[in-house]
Amino acid sequence: QIFVKTLTGKTITLEVEPSDTIENVKAKIQDKEGIPPDQQRLIFAGKQLEDGRTLSDYNIQKESTLHLVL
């Protein structure tokens, strides 16, 4: 699982696999929060994550925290 922290300070927990794409993660966030993926920007280690890449591409491991910017 990974954590996604929103600007409001809320933390969302997501069940993911390293092979999941960023697009996939955004879809999971939409399921939980109702935020359309095209409004979501995910930041990890100061980098904006691209939809077509996977979590493992960015070396995002379990218990990692991503930041969600709208």
Rank of each mutant, 00 (worst) to 15 (best):
K62F: 15
G9D: 05
K62N: 15
K32A: 13
T54A: 06
S64D: 12
P18Y: 11
T8P: 05
L7R: 10
E15Y: 14
I2H: 01
E63H: 14
E50F: 07
D51Y: 05
I22N: 01
N59V: 04
K5S: 08
L7F: 14
D57A: 06
K28L: 10
A45E: 12
A27P: 00
T13D: 04
K32R: 10
E15W: 14
L66C: 01
T54Q: 07
E23H: 11
I2K: 01
N59A: 08
V16Y: 15
P37C: 10
K32S: 10
L66Q: 01
G9P: 02
F3T: 06
D51G: 07
T21L: 11
I12H: 03
T54I: 06
K5G: 03
V16C: 11
S56Y: 11
L70Q: 09
F3V: 05
K28Y: 07
K28R: 08
E23F: 15
E50V: 08
T6M: 15
H67G: 05
E23L: 12
E15N: 13
L70D: 09
I35N: 03
R53F: 12
S56P: 03
G34V: 02
I2S: 01
L42G: 00
D31H: 13
N24T: 13
P18Q: 09
G52H: 13
I22C: 03
V69Q: 10
D51W: 04
K10M: 09
L14T: 02
T65M: 10
T21F: 08
P37T: 14
D57P: 00
A27L: 13
F3L: 06
L68N: 01
L14A: 02
E17Q: 11
G9N: 06
P37W: 12
I12P: 00
I29A: 02
F44M: 04
R41G: 06
I2A: 02
I43L: 14
K32H: 09
A45T: 05
E63S: 11
I35L: 06
A27Q: 13
R53N: 10
H67A: 07
T13V: 12
S19L: 09
Q30I: 03
S19A: 08
S64C: 09
D31A: 14
R53C: 12
N24P: 00
Q40G: 03
L68I: 05
R53D: 05
T54M: 10
R41D: 06
R53S: 07
K26H: 02
P36R: 09
E33T: 13
Q30N: 09
D31F: 12
E63C: 15
E17H: 11
Q30C: 15
L49E: 00
L55G: 00
A27Y: 14
R53T: 06
D57G: 04
K26Y: 03
T6N: 06
R41L: 11
D31W: 09
L68T: 02
E63G: 14
I29E: 00
P36G: 05
D20W: 09
R41P: 01
Y58E: 03
Q40Y: 15
G34C: 07
